[in-house]
Design a protein around this nucleic acid. Structure first.
Length: 475
DNA sequence: GCGATCATTATTAAG
DNA sequence: CTTAATCCATGATCGC
């Protein structure tokens, strides 16, 4: 039985090898030609990349652990193996290099200094200085607190003008990127990304010096970083959350990643109400949304909104009482926070159902549309009174295991949604024509961009992040 | 309704 | 240039 299976396997393998050999022979001439043409213009791309400091190199890999409460695991509260379950099931030692010293600090429930969790060989000073200079210049003490509603440029764009320049490509972190965010500033082009390992990468695009690419990397989390929030009026505060159930807030002044919140459950999404810098809304475990109040340092509300993980939380820029959530339970909902109140299972204002998990539901810049991306290969756009009008577009969204799921994001007005495709392009969907009107493509794109952020102030500037740690900036 | 198991997919670091 | 390793997303399928 066993030997038969092996011979069958062996036979197929040999067949494959033979076929490949034949193919190879037939392609030999072609490949030589390709080599020749490539060598003529082989100016090594991918010049910009993160650099790992030699001392810390050993801890660059550590198993990502998904936190699940004992309740959701169906275990008794005092059953063993909560904190160290990843050690109990050691992986097969497939290669000697997996003997890396585990990075414990990111797991510790205490504030961490930037220095201690720095992974890159770059000194922190230029980054810290840069961020602090932004924060100072942007604060206008004379005018008092501005209303942040709609604080984001609104303008139409010429799609043809969007270009990807080779110098606007960098490998900011290793591995799969889950979250990408532009600094909300007109003064610089800076992106922050979070990856699967819990690394937070900064890329100051304009910092071009002899020995620096402007890339900085830290490891404040022990698990995938699911969301990044940057305070619009004090950019020295950057909040991140992760699958391990931690929310940290980087205080650039103190150069410390503070610990804001911890839970047994994984945190899959997080958002900030645009008109309330002291609030933090995040999706926890299997369908719970919590509200964290920065002033009282406590969770002011907690609702059970879905039956499965919440993949996105977003607020209507024009009416910040409206919150949209998307979930792996196959629904996306709009909630009126004035009506949600204190009930633990409130009613939604609007619910749409898909055949599979919904990965995102984002309001358009004017708030009049809602774009959803789902695993059943659909992009949906809601509009009209009470969001009752809907158009659905087929869009292949089977990203599989190694890529982050696609999430369609809005540009700078209500006319376009940008979403990655499996052919390394960016599909641009027109909400007027209800179809893909163009696809951003470039030979410089060597991997599939999955996660995007549109620059809040620079019209036409779009950041795309891949599962290999690269960031592309179209402008 | 739930757990276990498997297939799928893309990227890259290492050989 | 080739190939092995990645590993926690998701759904389908099966057994209970």
């Amino acid at each position: 039985m066993e030997s038969q299976r092996i011979t069958e396997y062996e036979r197929k393998r040999l067949e494959n090898i033979k076929r490949n050999d034949e193919l190879l022979a037939s392609l030999k001439i072609h490949s030589k030609l390709a080599d020749l043409s490539a060598s003529t213009k082989r100016h090594r791309e991918q010049t910009k990349s993160y650099r790992i400091s030699p001392q810390k190199k050993a801890k660059s890999e550590t198993p990502a652990v998904i936190r699940r409460s004992l309740r959701t695991q169906g275990k008794k509260p005092d059953s063993p193996g909560l904190t160290d379950d990843f050690n109990e099931t050691p992986k097969k030692q497939t290669s000697p290099k997996s003997q890396v010293t585990p990075d414990k600090s990111a797991r510790e429930l205490k504030p961490l200094s930037m220095r201690d969790v720095s992974v890159s060989s770059e000194p922190d000073e230029p980054l810290v200085k840069k961020i602090l200079s932004l924060s100072v210049s942007k604060q206008s003490p004379s005018k008092g607190p501005k209303k942040a509603i709609g604080f984001r440029i609104r303008a139409s764009i010429d799609l043809d003008s969007m270009e990807l320049m080779p110098e606007n490509i960098a490998r900011v972190v290793p591995g799969r990127i889950l979250s990408v965010k532009f600094f909300p500033s007109t003064d610089i082009r800076m992106v922050v990304v979070g990856n699967k390992f819990g690394d937070l990468g900064f890329w100051n695009v304009d910092s071009e010096t002899e020995d620096s690419d402007g890339i900085y990397m830290y490891r404040p989390h022990p698990a995938p970083i699911s969301s990044i929030c940057i305070q619009p009026f004090s950019m020295n505060k950057i909040t991140t959350c992760c699958y391990h159930g931690l929310i940290r807030s980087l205080d650039v002044n103190k150069e410390i990643f503070d610990l804001t919140y911890t839970t047994e459950d994984a945190i899959y999404s997080m958002s900030q109400r645009p008109d309330d810098v002291n609030s933090l809304y995040f999706g926890e475990g299997r369908g719970v949304v919590c509200v964290w109040d920065e002033r009282s340092k406590s969770s002011s509300s907690s609702w059970n909104l879905h039956d499965s993980r919440i993949n996105s939380i977003d607020f209507n820029p024009e009416n910040t009482n409206l919150m949209a959530t998307s979930s792996s339970d196959g629904t996306a909902c709009i909630w009126d926070l004035r009506k949600v109140g204190r009930k633990s299972n409130p009613n939604s204002l609007k619910e749409i159902t898909r055949d599979r998990a919904v990965h995102s539901a984002y309001f358009s810049p004017s708030g009049s549309h809602l774009a959803t991306t789902s695993h059943d290969d659909k992009i949906g756009v809601l509009s009209g009174a009470n969001y009752d009008d809907e158009f659905l577009l087929y869009h292949y969204n089977q990203t599989g295991r190694w890529l982050s799921s696609f999430k369609g994001v809005w540009g700078w007005d209500d006319s376009y949604v940008f979403v990655g495709n499996m052919k390394r392009g960016v599909d641009v969907i027109s909400t007027e024509k209800n179809r893909i009107v163009t696809t951003l493509e470039s030979p410089h794109v060597t991997a599939i961009p999955c996660r995007f952020d549109a620059h809040p102030f620079k019209v036409g500037m779009l950041a795309g992040a891949t599962s290999g740690g690269q960031v592309y900036i179209w402008s």
